[in-house]
Design a protein around this nucleic acid. Structure first.
Lengths: 228, 228
DNA sequence: GCACAATTTGAACAACTGGTAGAAACATAC
DNA sequence: GTATGTTTCTACCAGTTGTTCAAATTGTGC
């Protein structure tokens, strides 16, 4: 009955067990490092399937040490959400506030969102995947802020429809959701080593969506090619 | 003092563990019912965070009974993947095989994919989320079939570019990924009780994307509504 | 060297995990 | 009724989970 101490409890997942007996140096942990490593593992294996042992192992530390820097497992997840939100919200709000024409606003919003999705892709994947594991008032706050973020896109589209640069036959909310899906999905397949930079991808997405929303292609939307 | 309060950090955990001693009637299980219930729970809480007890509980049965119908937990996941693939692959292949013009092919492909994403949304969410939990040759098979599926969209777009109905300035693979992201994302927000049917949404998506890809100013306007 | 705070360890814990075995309940045919 | 095969239940196993905590280790100023 007396449980035999699991001496060799290595991180039993996919990673091979190589006890860092060589470098006996203790590792300097930090909240940032923990959150970054956790985002990576959560994105790869899911929150529920990632253990604190896994996270500690990837940092070369032990599970107990994590608790000096974080409150609990859900706390790590909270930090990932805050990281994504602080990187996303303010730049978009500024774009929306500017008085550029709607189509240019939309291009810039797409570029911004694609940039976040590309550069923070593990955290981004976690963001849109693991909210069921958040609890309490924080969970509600996230839902609210996400809605506000989405509504910026919707408003830009509505603005363009009112100004006559976007077709009014498509519901702005559906268009915004479609556009966001397009961008968010990128965190599933984008690799910085691929043939296109995220700026190029954003430009293609913008061309795709804006051309489709434009009612009058007569002026010169496809061949204009000059910065306003 | 080992007064460690086992806090319920789980947010969306179902009701507390109350063995259904009230209704002692036994439940008729089936592989289909198990897979359906599991898809629902996996979509909501993730594969790793869903226990066999959870699945059994939602079916009003016990864990042991599941094993008469399924081999193990991963086997359930395999069935979910097969369900999505069998619903997706053949209709799309037929659309691609047809000799309709490329823009109509694309409209139909979008309608098909949106239909699958809308009607099988829990399974769809699982499909694009839990492949790390598949192992062995089946995992590789899924990756391969997914690639084939995506390539259909890419080919339709290339076809349209060659025929001059789609702009050649956008990389076909990127356009296909963007389009698929748009459709796949729908399983995250679509509710059949919403203001639009999935057919209407598919029509809007088609209008968005095809208009954007079209080089000529006059796309045929009212064109929607495809069967099945 | 010493004192004192910051940090990490390693073991312990209770709860829960996927999976198994055998007994029990059921259905159907005779 | 008995016999037989199908389906579900209960109880259990061995291992893993998140979390706590005293003790050990490290860093820093003197």
């Amino acid at each position: 009955m007396s449980g035999s101490a699991p001496q060799d409890t290595a991180a039993t997942k996919k990673t091979t067990r190589s006890n860092r007996s060589k470098e006996t140096q203790r590792v300097r942990l930090s909240q940032k490092a923990i959150v970054a490593a956790a985002a990576d593992l959560f994105a790869r294996n899911g929150f529920g399937a990632t253990s604190l042992d896994d996270i500690a192992y990837q940092l070369g530390a032990t599970k107990g040490a994590l608790y000096y820097h974080i409150k609990n497992k859900e706390d790590i997840l909270r930090h990932i959400y805050l990281m994504v939100l602080t990187a996303s919200e303010e730049p978009l709000a500024e774009i929306a506030r500017s008085n550029a024409p709607a189509d240019e606003k939309l291009s810039r919003a797409i570029a911004h969102h694609v940039s976040v999705a590309a550069s923070r892709s593990p955290a981004m994947m976690v963001f849109y995947r693991e909210h069921p594991h958040l609890s309490g008032p924080f969970a509600r706050e996230i839902v609210e802020r996400k809605k506000v973020y989405e509504r910026y896109f919707e408003q830009i589209i509505e603005e363009g429809q009112a100004a006559g640069v976007f077709s009014p036959t498509i519901d702005a909310k559906i268009a915004a959701f479609g556009l966001l899906g397009m961008c968010n999905w990128l965190s599933q397949w984008y690799q910085s080593s691929g043939p296109y930079t995220h700026q190029q991808i954003a430009a293609m997405f913008a061309q795709m969506v804006e051309g489709g929303l434009a009612p009058t292609p007569s002026p010169s939307p496809a061949k204009a090619g000059d910065g306003s």
